[in-house]
Design a protein around this nucleic acid. Sequence first.
DNA 1: CATTGTAACTTTCAATTTGAAAGTGACTCT
DNA 2: AGAGTCACTTTCAAATTGAAAGTTACAATG
Lengths: 129, 129
Amino acid sequence: MPDTYRSACPIASALDIVGDRWTLVVLRSLMAGLQRYGELRTIPEGISTNILADRLALMEREGLVTRHPYQENPWRYEYRLTRKGADLLPVLQALAIWGGAHIGDRWVPPGWFFDATPDRFYPDASATG
Amino acid sequence: MPDTYRSACPIASALDIVGDRWTLVVLRSLMAGLQRYGELRTIPEGISTNILADRLALMEREGLVTRHPYQENPWRYEYRLTRKGADLLPVLQALAIWGGAHIGDRWVPPGWFFDATPDRFYPDASATG
DNA sequence: CATTGTAACTTTCAATTTGAAAGTGACTCT
DNA sequence: AGAGTCACTTTCAAATTGAAAGTTACAATG
């Protein structure tokens, strides 16, 4: 968690964790199926490498994602959503509805996105931590 | 709108408008009934005056709020949500649910907050622009 | 008429954050 | 041996944030 929250308001406190320019965009990408650093680098928004590494580290510290090795020599990890991370899905859905309604000519998300519930993203108990 | 959006993704684009440290906190405060600069200055998060003035100006430019004079000599304005601003209520509700569920000891929002729909905040047609 | 007070900003400037680009380390492949 | 890949890390300039002081316009008080 942040060292201090601005207040005990659940909205302000949530924004102390995810209320920056990139965290929710990375989260969206994880929900879209991207799992590795190299995949996340390719998102159309063009995140720079230092910011991506920093956000992934912050998200791990906040318990939004966990790292799972997919290779040794050298060790490489993929990032998986935790329940805490997956539970932000309704925030992304609400933002997508708003953006689609009030900004012109946005992409239409795939059908599964609005139908999904958070447990779609943490099917295994090991990712619950 | 921002000069350029990072992509045409409705989530990323929405965050290009409201994805900073303060805009959604100010929006929450407007929904809680605060309408004037001097009232908004008193929020428990402690926003500094230059940031508040800047965010209000940005929110007006984005069409999230409109200014309505409540006094002449000198002119003073109160800020009212537009439909576009009020339609962010589901985002705030989702953030509040998540913050309440995943961060310890947060305030419990008043009952009306989760029951409300956006039209609670734009009762008059003049605020629709 | 000078002084104090109030409301809504605006300015200043230091500190923090962001971002583009280049660099690093551990490998694999040719 | 040399080139390529992946996942970062470092560097440093630019943009943003924030605390504090200053400004403008007026009302109220003495």
